[in-house]
Computed example of a mutant assay.
Amino acid sequence: MVKKTGRPGYLQIADELRERIRGGLLAPGEPLPSTAQLAEQFDASLSVVKMAVGILRNEGLVVGQQGKGVFVQEDGQPEQDSDLRTEVTALRSAVQDLTRRLEQVEAALPAADPKTRN
């Protein structure tokens, strides 16, 4: 059940499902309960449950199969997922580096004098 802790319900549900997956209560290849079942179980709306499952998808813990449901990711995740994580990490690092360099450039520029504007 979603608690009124100030933490969004979809994050609470994602945390609970993640714990079940990592704890082995939901085994690799096993389907998650339906969205309606999860909504009833957590006393939450369908949209809140869908957001929680979306988080788990983004983390690579579950995978959806059109017309079949959402399943716990099999052991030995596809190499492509690992490559994507590596690429995202590299992109984040590059953005942080570019942000730092831009801040240095901006700090080196003379401050614009509002009196000299047309």
Rank of each mutant, 00 (worst) to 15 (best):
T5N: 11
Q80F: 14
V62F: 03
Q65V: 13
K115Q: 14
K4D: 14
E87L: 14
E87H: 09
D81S: 05
G69Q: 05
A90L: 12
E79M: 11
I55V: 15
E74K: 09
Q66I: 09
K68F: 05
V72Q: 01
I13P: 02
D81A: 10
D15Y: 05
L46A: 06
I13N: 14
P31E: 03
G60L: 01
G9L: 05
K4F: 00
G6Y: 13
V49L: 06
I13F: 12
E106S: 10
V53P: 09
L25C: 03
R57P: 02
G64L: 02
S93K: 13
L56D: 12
A107P: 05
V70R: 00
V88T: 00
L61A: 03
R101I: 01
R100K: 14
A112C: 08
D15G: 12
L91S: 02
M51I: 01
A52K: 09
G67I: 06
R101S: 01
P110K: 14
Q37F: 02
V53K: 07
P110D: 15
R101Q: 14
T89F: 08
D83L: 13
E79D: 12
P31G: 08
A39R: 03
A27P: 03
Q66D: 04
V48M: 01
R117D: 04
L32P: 06
G67F: 03
M1P: 00
Q66S: 10
L46C: 01
K50T: 10
L25K: 12
L11V: 10
E79K: 12
R18P: 00
G6W: 13
D83E: 12
A44M: 11
P33A: 09
T89W: 04
A111F: 00
I13W: 04
G29A: 00
Q104E: 15
M51Q: 13
E16T: 11
L38A: 00
V72F: 06
A108M: 04
Q77R: 10
S47T: 15
A90E: 14
L91E: 13
E19K: 15
R100Q: 14
V72N: 00
N118M: 04
A94K: 15
R22L: 15
T86Q: 14
S93G: 07
Q73I: 02
S45F: 04
R22V: 14
E87N: 05
K115D: 13
Q12V: 06
V2E: 05
Q41F: 08
G64V: 01
L84P: 03
G54S: 15
D97V: 10
L25P: 04
Y10G: 07
G54N: 12
Q73W: 03
K115Y: 10
L109G: 07
R7Y: 06
R117F: 09
L98F: 07
V49C: 04
Q65P: 08
T5F: 08
R57A: 10
R18L: 11
E40R: 06
P114R: 12
A36R: 15
Q104V: 04
V95W: 09
R57C: 12
V2S: 03
K3N: 01
L11M: 12
R101C: 03
P31K: 06
G64N: 05
S34W: 10
G69C: 06
D113H: 12
V2L: 04
G69P: 05
S45I: 02
V53L: 08
A52C: 01
